[in-house]
Design a protein around this nucleic acid. Structure first.
Length: 564
RNA sequence: CGGGGCGUGGCGCAGCCUGGUAGCGCACCUGCUUUGGGAGCAGGGGGUCGCCGGUUCAAAUCCGGCCGCCCCGACCA
């Protein structure tokens, strides 16, 4: 591609409203442009990157037997009503001119299951993997960070159909294999984490995460352990507990309604306090969640444990049912007590808790002896907690893919069944597996950018070679660049050729901004020796010059193979 | 949905408080010079100042309403 024929609107300055690095560089390098909030156009160079990701995914899903097809973006709302998902806030709803109810698909479980329910009749047709690359619509409450969280984006989603749970496990394992290969091939730094099954329902799930500063998820990591903090569990850091007592004793704590104030007043660590967090469940019952004073509740883990949603109790409800806010505790409470595992697993008779009376706390509280409880792991893990003896660290990451065991969540409401060998009707067991190519591209920008711009992994780069021709039209160096350009193209190497009539500084700066792995420079300096300069983008390494005529393409190809 | 900020040529901004000529840098066009790190000189084109209404002789500027966009939080199959 000649740059004189390429729509590559680079910018010297960052757009005023951009914050995330992938947003700034994506716009500055001319890869993407914004149309509206969370609505992005992929310009030619950016689209090449996107297509590179798509092709890697296609090859690896094909390799596990996936069959590519294409399903519509607009669906009849009735289909979504059947699975109960038409009430999701993020679902775009619309009507046609006759008033028919439609939705913009946010995923394609309904559509693919609808077809399979009509087409598949026999166990002989299973297992099966279907997939497509299709635009998804999501009425996001807050699109952000450029291409990272948008209202419309392309997703690869595949769906597996099996006879039974064992078959699903196999299809799931195939996808794990394919995904591991895909993310390895992209050149990203990535890891696979245990994840929450969320409102999709289902029996098991993993997320593929790419660490990057603009990431929206926090991931807990230790050697041999990786989990989304939404579900992460870890051994708490120890607390120097006060001496136990044979029975709780009241102590005056006037005006001290915070953990910090009570701990400071009594001279004990915050972790020696029992933090009482009353919640009202969706069924209306109130539960007292008790955590260590230095810990925080994890809403998702608590929801999963309760098996239903909840909200924090209001102050008047607390006053009526338990005691004065700031002084409540589990001792003497009539409520069901959920005791966090960090406390339950480390028994002590030295805890401090609210006394359920104004300005009073209790010292020497012992769970079990002084109050009954149900154990539950519902806290958010903290940096420094341990898993298998190793301290965990928590870092931001962006979710670039997920794999999910759906079970019969969709086959049941949509009637996707088959006849088994005995002629009995059975539900099909399903899995769904998503990847966001745009997020992979954005994560690659974030992970590898330097002060000069983007530095693509070779597999994603819009072009493998950025050929810079110095001098103006008609000079020997430009003639030589033309010859080299033709030769590289002839050898099947993806090359973008800067044939513009601009100064060398601008050409070099834009080459580094765009971030192709290998830059070749044809200039007077080395031309007289019949050589072309080669520089690797990653680390801006100076590489040996390559001969211009004899075997130039082979030499360039060899250099490319050395690039990351 | 709560909090904060911003809408002025393609991009980045000033002007608004104190009403009266729309301005700067980059980019763009023409010519000449320049060509190994975002060049120089000269000339030139381009903006209903987000939209609607109000006040006024006069509104980018003051007042009211609306829309759009960004950031933090809530939310996020």
């Amino acid at each position: 591609m000649r740059m004189t024929n390429l729509l590559l609107p680079t910018e010297r300055e960052a757009p005023a409203d951009a914050e995330a690095l992938s947003h700034i560089l994506g716009v500055r390098a001319g890869l993407v442009r914004q149309l509206g909030a969370g609505l992005w156009t992929w310009l030619p160079a950016g689209w090449r990157v996107h297509q590179n990701v798509v092709q890697i995914i296609r090859e690896e899903i094909d390799a596990i037997g996936g069959q590519e097809l294409l399903m519509p973006v607009i669906h009849p709302r009735e289909l979504w009503r059947r699975t109960g998902r038409d009430q999701i806030d993020e679902l775009f709803k619309l009507q046609d001119r006759r008033g028919s109810e439609l939705v913009l698909a946010m995923t394609h479980e309904e559509a693919v299951t609808f077809h399979v329910s009509q087409i598949v009749r026999s166990y002989r047709e299973l297992p099966m993997i279907l997939y497509h690359f299709q635009t998804k619509g999501r009425d996001e409450p807050r699109p952000r960070a450029g291409v990272l969280r948008t209202r419309e984006f392309i997703m690869k989603d595949s769906y597996s159909f099996d006879r039974d749970p064992a078959g699903l496990d196999e299809s799931y394992a195939k996808h794990e294999l394919a995904y591991d290969r895909i993310f390895d091939r992209t050149g990203l730094e990535w890891y696979k984490v245990d994840s929450d099954v969320g409102m999709m329902g289902g029996t098991g799930a993993h997320e593929y995460m790419a660490p990057c500063p603009a990431g929206e998820n926090d991931v807990a990591l230790a050697p041999g352990y990786a989990a989304n903090v939404e579900i992460a569990s870890a051994e708490p850091q120890p607390v120097a507990m006060p001496a136990p007592r044979s029975a709780p004793e009241e102590i005056a704590t006037p005006g001290m309604t915070t953990i910090e104030a009570v701990a400071a007043h009594l001279g004990v660590p915050a972790g020696a306090l029992l933090k009482a967090y009353p919640v009202v469940k969706d069924d209306g019952a109130m539960t007292l969640v008790v955590l260590r004073g230095d810990h925080r509740v994890n809403d998702i883990k608590l929801t999963n444990h309760l098996g239903q949603g909840f909200r924090p109790a209001q102050e008047d409800e607390i006053a009526e049912r338990i005691g004065p806010a700031g002084y409540i505790g589990p001792v003497g409470s009539q409520l069901q007590v959920l005791l966090d595992a960090a406390i339950a697993d480390h028994p002590s008779g030295g805890f401090v808790a609210g006394a359920n009376r104004p300005d009073m706390h209790l010292e020497g509280v012992e769970p079990g002896r002084d109050f009954a409880f149900e154990r539950a792991d519902v806290r958010r893990v903290e940096e420094g907690d341990t898993v298998g003896g190793h301290a965990i660290r928590i870092e931001p990451a962006i979710e670039v893919g997920n794999i999910f065991k759906l079970g019969t969540r969709y086959s049941e409401p949509l009637g996707a069944t088959y006849l088994d060998e005995q002629g009995a009707e059975q539900l099909i067991w399903m899995g769904s597996y998503g990847i966001g190519p745009a997020r992979i591209a954005a994560a690659a920008i974030e992970q590898y950018a330097d002060e000069k711009g983007i530095s693509w992994p070779r597999a994603l780069a819009p072009w493998q070679v950025h050929l810079v021709g110095l001098g103006k039209d008609g000079t020997p160096e430009r003639d030589a660049a033309e010859v080299l350009y033709a030769e590289l193209q002839g050898a099947g190497i993806d090359v973008v050729y800067d044939d513009r009539q601009t100064g060398p500084g601008e050409k070099f700066a834009e080459a580094e901004l765009l971030g192709c792995p290998l830059r070749l420079t044809v200039g007077r300096r080395t031309l007289e020796d019949g050589l072309v300069e080669a520089q690797g983008r990653r680390g801006r390494t100076e590489l040996r010059a390559v001969p211009l005529r004899e075997g130039a393409a082979q030499a360039v190809d060899a250099l490319l193979r050395e690039q990351p």
